[in-house]
Design a protein around this nucleic acid. Sequence first.
RNA 1: GGGGGCGUGGCGGAAUGGUAGACGCAGCAGACUUAAAAUCUGCAGGCCACCGGUCGUGGGGGUUCGAGUCCCCCCGUCCCUACCA
Length: 855
Amino acid sequence: MSRYAASEIEPKWQKAWDEAGVFAAKRVEGKPKYYVLEMFPYPSGDLHIGHVRNYTMGDVVARYKIATGHAVLHPMGWDAFGLPAENASIERGIHPGVWTRQNIANMKKQFAMLGLSLDWSRELATCDPEYYGQQQAMFLDFLEKGLVYRKNAVVNWDPVDMTVLANEQVEDGKGWRSGAQVERRELTQWFFKISDYSEELLEALDRLDNWPDKVKLMQRNWIGKSRGLQFAFSLVDGPEGHDRVEVYTTRPDTLLGASFVGISPDHPLAKALEKANAELAEFNAECRKMGTAEEELEKAEKRGFDTGLRVRHPFDTAWELPVYVANFILMDYGTGAIFGCPAHDARDLEFARKYELPVVSTFAPAMGEAGTFILPENGGPAYVPPKTETVRYIKGFAGDEAQTGNDAIDAAIAFCEANGVGHGVTKFRLRDWGLSRQRYWGCPIPVVHCESCGVVPEKKENLPVVLPEDVTFDRPGNALSWHPTWRDVPCPSCGKPAQRETDTMDTFVDSSWYFARFTSPRAETPTEAAEAEYWMNVDQYIGGVEHAILHLLYSRFFARAMHACGHLPASAIEPFDALFTQGMVTHEIYMTRDANGRAVYHLPSAVKDGKLADGTEVEIIPSAKMSKSKKNVVDPVDIINQYGADTARWFVLSDSPPERDVEWTASGAEATSKHLARVWRIVTEIVEAPEDGAKPADKDLLREMHKAIHDVTMGIESFGFNTSVARLYAFTSALQKSEAGKAAKLEAAKALVQLMSPMTPHLAEELWSVLGGEGLVTEAAWPKADPAMLIDDEVTLPIQINGKRRSEITVPRDMAKDEIESLVMSDAAVVRALEGGASPKKLIVVPGRIVNVVI
RNA sequence: GGGGGCGUGGCGGAAUGGUAGACGCAGCAGACUUAAAAUCUGCAGGCCACCGGUCGUGGGGGUUCGAGUCCCCCCGUCCCUACCA
């Protein structure tokens, strides 16, 4: 008998699949299609164990769907543009394209080791002109449809690196790389008009039944629909050109509790006033400086600057309110101006107390709890009940005295509209999507700037606008801008010398339609109607929850925009039918402290039994995200070399539910490997056993087999891979211990191998051939459970007395209820409990499940 | 501040309102072996007057014949998000 040698069988079967072309997606009329997609990786150079988990899950689904008779599309590509490639250039003098393609080649080798059922003939990289040229074509289509436009926007500008920074690249108001003080600069940038779809993107979430609620909720919050009143305060003696301040509020019912008006430091009125007020100018400048920092904002002091200006209250022109510039008001939400109602907003209350402004309650708790309630004006906290709670209005002006916040808001909007004070509006938090990036390594925006014609779209026949190869990164900023000739082109409209746009697209654009491109990756148009019609939508999309908002929202927008331009059918505007967000793979961190109390991390190989080689106790931090600096990274290549891909695959599926994190442990990997070797041994022993006849134990084994088929199948279909794995362990034990004859054992072994094949395909393929299975197990039809074999002839019913388990009886499965009842009544434990003949209050018999005697 | 997830043996976890702890890890005992490894066979929530009983799914209430599961309150923990008017 041979031994299980993963390193021999894995390459062998990978080659066999390849030669048979079993994973090439083929349109077959009359066959149901299934499109499985895992989020494509950024080609950082190495696969990490998280990728292994992600892609193995997709692979299980894909292989299962192949076995159940589907035409499966399971493609892979590379999210290949982005900043790390440019950073590598700066650090190592290597061209971003060269670096990226090297990484792709390396990762592709690692992918191959995993034995995934991928159709590599459809491989694409977003940095290929073949791909991004089609993206440019779509950009032009979007432009024509008014889905892309240019406007000025404030950006974080790093004056040393001469680049725009994303919010997360600004730390403490300084550029993350250069450390330079970040400036807020206004640039003309391109935007996708995603806000046109705010309502639709929100409303359509309700129909995404197979998306996690968590993700839908995150998107809802991100889109942020709110209903409120927009109206103007008129200014008393405002500066030239300013006679009113427009505000937006979601609580118009508190209008009579207003005590001040606050405007953003970036508000046009603030800007007008600072010209004549040096002190205000300084205040504003200070506010702008702290712009983007994160959590400090929370603790940052709420500061205001009294402009001295006053506005009139819309319902009482004699009532004047002061106007403050306040550091907590954002220019890009609502109108950049608010009215403060300190009684019903914690932040406004803090502000009012600081600047000694009046606090006026407009409502108080309805009844009952009034006893302990302290009005904010008497020193209590701001009273902010849920809008669904009924409260008593003290200074209401519309509707009943006692009503819910929501009703009062409705009434207030109606009242204000009737009295000519503003109008009800719906606002969204969702902003248009700025796509301009001042970087080299991205998809060039295909427009030309002409002195006489302005901004002119490039002609489609001139696409792709290809990135120049001869660039250097020896000076900061966008390498495209420094290129000696690339910018110079004739104007597509008038033919006079003009200049290309040097901005490239946000890499989120690249990943917003790759799923559609996979349906016809080599087409000379972005998609091909027949292919897109057949393969879309993605039936199952799998990826990390970190993409819950931006990537998935942008993709949903893109699918709609592509449909508007004829690149996708109407049925594909929600491109992902089902979404699964998988958890991380974690690993313990081993830490000690140096003389100064600083943390020192140790590689797992340096730790034995919680101690270092020198005997020092190590602090163990469990379930930590893998990170190179914490030295707790597990390299899949090491694992595959040591145990084989099937072990790595089986491990990442076992134990934890797929949506939760799983902790990688050396002992777990060891155990997995042993288990696979055990399966190997059991199966080969069965094959080598001498022929014998049917045996009494055959039926039990086959019954176990059918139950395993049923349970494992259910597990795969419901993304309960961990329970499928557990079930396979149990079935393996049953097979090992079975006293059945050889024929029954062979049948059971074949089923075992088939059920394992989505998870450990190489081992399954090898054992399938050992068992004399026909063709490839990968292409064999998935076994079907016989419903008749799932039911046992006898069932054991637990007997509860007053809800506690006291005894049990074993009865034929279909025994009549009254027969069971009489059996139960004569059960020793029941007789004892009834103490000589009393009859129970109640006797509950749930057929096939349980009996409960209530005394 | 807002939102969400999670909380079950030493550990990872399982359980359509119906025998809590499947399966795996670690552990213990035994078999095989000169020995070890590997393998195989068992045992295994706590406590007790141990053929039985009792307590047990973060804590406290409730609904139910029956609650890990449903409802209310509280505690802990992790993640996301945030001056959103």
